[in-house]
Design a protein around this nucleic acid. Structure first.
Lengths: 241, 241
DNA sequence: CAGTGGTCTAGACCACGCT
DNA sequence: GCGTGGTCTAGACCACTGG
């Protein structure tokens, strides 16, 4: 808690954050240039730069070359979420992990999956359905499409001992990932597999990965809503990290 | 797409990312020290530092002083999500925003709210219930507790023209925010207010903010699952930002 | 075209925490 | 203790873009 223990770039960051929060700096206001602030805080421009860059990454300010830095429209908070591997998540709860493949076929994707993969409408891909257990209680139902153009080895892969996600992580690099979170009501099949009642809320994570613009995989990870909660902590200031 | 246009720190980052993804560097492996890598890449240590720092922030590697930098256990992806203000979210959809206060009373919090606020079990707080509309269609049901010890002005505030969240953002700074995402089935009251059927899936965002260890507010933001989807994009490499 | 942010260098000192 | 990462400086050049 020693004041001098706090790095200079955090002091600057917090100082600006306070001014923004207390309304001294309002959305749309321009803040001082890096060079000016460096003089104000008696430090190097690089130090100021880091402070403001982090504020920009966190959505508090918007930067444009030549135009300067402005306070972003209020209230847009961004936070970091971690999407863990099922196995790790289950083992972290002190349960034993087990999974079971339910389906593994080549098929032509339809609807959401088709759109997500962005393949030729007639092209087929690998479809995998599996369920993940925590101590023999269903924890996650996984439906996954894999683009065989990008990952041809998947066609002959066996998912006896390693689950599709972990196999994919080890096999195929990706350049871009998208995640979507949503809530749905379980249909008959989903609820049967997850040991729920039809209509029970599901917490759904969708993941889509690409490599250089080509889809690698699209997955839907469905969890019983009753025992799933995704957490995100965000220290806005006065802390490291 | 010009290769030379890519900053050096990103080249280093992507190079390491590729090695990790292709299994050349496996979880637990130690990677070269900053100084060594600076020589390998013929650049300053600060440049290497930035590359590795970002990898650490994104969860790909773990750093410890003296012990060095190691590849994190595979697959732990972290991504940034933005939690927008309701009003902005609704207006971004091209709809007009309107909200209505349903309840505004001083009461003793119970259950989750009590735990979240961490107040004296007998202490009362301000409870607010409101609903937010997109073009007269219910979009979000909000239940919020405000700690009056920290924000005494809330007791006399009127939420006729400004909604509780926006009022709070303008009024009270905070140092720490936590968010939780989950899926629940709507009960009778919730479904009536949101224009749904009982049992329909809700996408719930819980937000808790603190200032120096003292709770400011705890809010539950409930959305009809059928038309709510929270998105997170994450460019792992080969892109800026 | 000129001002702003974005990146980079070649040093330096310090704090932490393995060994 | 000592090696590692964490931070910082005082410069520099460049890229973008708004005026």
């Amino acid at each position: 808690m020693n004041a001098s223990a706090e790095p200079a770039y955090l002091k600057i960051k917090n100082e600006l954050l306070n001014r923004i929060r207390q309304g001294e700096l309002r959305p749309g206001d321009k803040i001082d240039h890096e060079e000016v602030m460096a003089k104000q805080f008696s430090c190097a421009r690089a130090t100021v730069h880091r402070a403001i860059r982090e504020l920009a990454e966190e959505g508090f300010v918007e930067r444009k070359r030549r135009a300067g830095t402005r306070v972003a429209s209020a209230g847009t908070r961004s936070t970091r979420v971690t999407i863990p591997l099922v196995r790790q998540e289950i083992e972290a709860r002190g349960a034993s992990y087990r999974f079971k493949m339910l389906e593994q076929i080549k098929a032509v994707p339809t609807g959401m999956a088709s759109a997500a993969l962005g393949l030729d409408p007639k092209a087929s891909a690998l479809f995998l359905k599996s369920i993940h257990f925590a101590d023999d209680t269903p924890f996650q139902l996984e439906e996954r499409w894999i683009n065989l153009d990008m990952v041809p080895q998947a066609a002959d892969a066996s998912f006896e001992t390693i689950n599709p996600n972990e196999w994919l992580v080890q096999t195929s690099p990706y350049s871009e990932a998208e995640h979507f979170f949503s809530a749905e009501n379980a249909d008959k099949e989903q609820s049967d597999l997850l040991g729920l009642n039809t209509g029970d809320a599901l917490f759904v994570i969708e993941r889509r990965t690409h490599l250089n613009g080509n889809a690698i995989t699209y997955a839907r990870l469905m969890h019983p809503g009753a025992n799933y909660r995704m957490a995100a902590k965000n220290f806005s200031f006065s802390t490291k990290n």
